[in-house]
Design a binder for these strands. Structure first.
Lengths: 215, 215
DNA sequence: CGATGCCTTGACCAACCTCAAGTGGCGTGG
DNA sequence: CCACGCCACTTGAGGTTGGTCAAGGCATCG
């Protein structure tokens, strides 16, 4: 987030920033609550989700270190967020952030980029949810996670999956059982090897990318 | 789009704008093409979609008069767009638009709002695609269309559905047959009445909203 | 060592998809 | 004006993917 910014901008941002720690399972923001803060993830993982009245939920995305949440723009949060692992973040109160925002055009530009990237990711995820099979969904999930980790220079052997089966299911629009069966299927096809539940070894990346049917 | 802007800004925008007309079925932009233009819809309807190699497609949204497409930011288009009815639009070449963009902070702010609204809509649509039943999907589609038309002061009796069954299917992540059957079901439940294929009379809006399971 | 939480596996089921045929409106041409 | 073909939509029968419900495995932790 802050990579593109200059010295003065960073100092202004730092002056309004506070630190926060969350345990796994702790809620960060709830849909419809007053959007008083924006956040930047330092470590850990956060899921973003929407729920129906009867408890069905859809995770629309998840945040890893470096990711941003809570556009300092208007009204209430439109989505809920909850830590899925112990998480550290920077917290920016909204009004001061807006002032920094107004002061530096660059900051605004940067935000526009962030939101636009989120929108592009959302469009791809809609294709997944609307048209892909269970195997394609899980493969896509793994491939995207791989690329995301690699982009920030992390190790991918093993690949640490930040979400539990339950959250993967809610992310991919499946049930936990189908996710589990599909992991097993990929293992039997020798495309991946399974370590502990949160570890996956990708054995045949090419085939995994094929199976993902990435457009 | 232009409502929030001042005189000078509008004049600058107009000076770079050109007009365009599309027939139903004509393509406007294709995913991965150079993003040389941005557009603002004046009349008609445009679908936005992503495709898989084998032809499966997912419509991620559709544009009605007033809507904007083609953030003047970076790189190539990330999505395809095609007119679904005769359509008029304003076309802005990218580089000049960027200059207007840089000149007026307000324009940039406005764009940020537009993109953010799109993102919020995308998150809601993901909930629909991942977790809702066919009846809930179609009801949600109709309720949202109702609200959208009402917001811009249009008539909703009959409600003109801008998409064909095929496109509704691709939008809702269903098949055309399921969409048709679900329309029939809503008719048999006396929640709607069907006129010509593109006309729907909403008979029991409250029940329709209930069936939509809008969070 | 039991309890708990998370994951896997199995048997069965249902929502939705596929494939196929039928309906109806509309424009065209005889 | 009617016959025809076309296209979009509807309807039906049967199949498949993924969901549901239930049981079992396997770590971790007190």
């Amino acid at each position: 987030m802050c990579a593109a910014l200059g010295d003065g901008e960073l100092r202004d941002l730092e002056s309004i920033m506070t630190h926060r720690r969350l345990d796994a399972g702790q809620s960060l923001v709830i849909e419809h609550d007053a959007g008083d803060y924006a956040f930047n993830v330092i470590s850990g993982a956060v899921k973003l989700y929407k729920s129906l009245a009867d408890g069905r939920a859809q995770i629309t995305g998840y945040l890893l270190p470096g990711d941003f949440l809570g556009l300092p723009l208007r009204g209430n949060y439109t989505i809920s967020a909850e830590a899925v692992a112990p998480t550290e973040l920077c917290q920016f109160p909204r009004e001061p952030l807006k002032r920094v925002f107004d002061k530096y055009e660059k900051v605004q530009e940067r935000f526009l980029t962030v939101v636009h990237d989120d929108l592009v990711a959302a469009q791809e995820h809609m294709l997944l949810l609307g048209r892909k099979t269970a195997t394609e969904r899980l493969s896509t999930f793994l491939v995207r996670l791989l690329r995301r980790i690699e982009r920030v220079g992390g190790g991918v052997d093993p690949l640490y999956v930040p979400l539990h089966r339950n959250d993967i299911a809610d992310y991919l629009g499946l049930t936990i059982e189908t996710v589990s069966r599909t992991f097993t299927k990929l293992r039997n096809d020798e495309v991946i090897r399974l370590g502990k539940a949160d570890q996956v070894f990708v054995l045949d990346r090419e085939r995994l990318e094929e199976m993902a049917g990435i457009d």
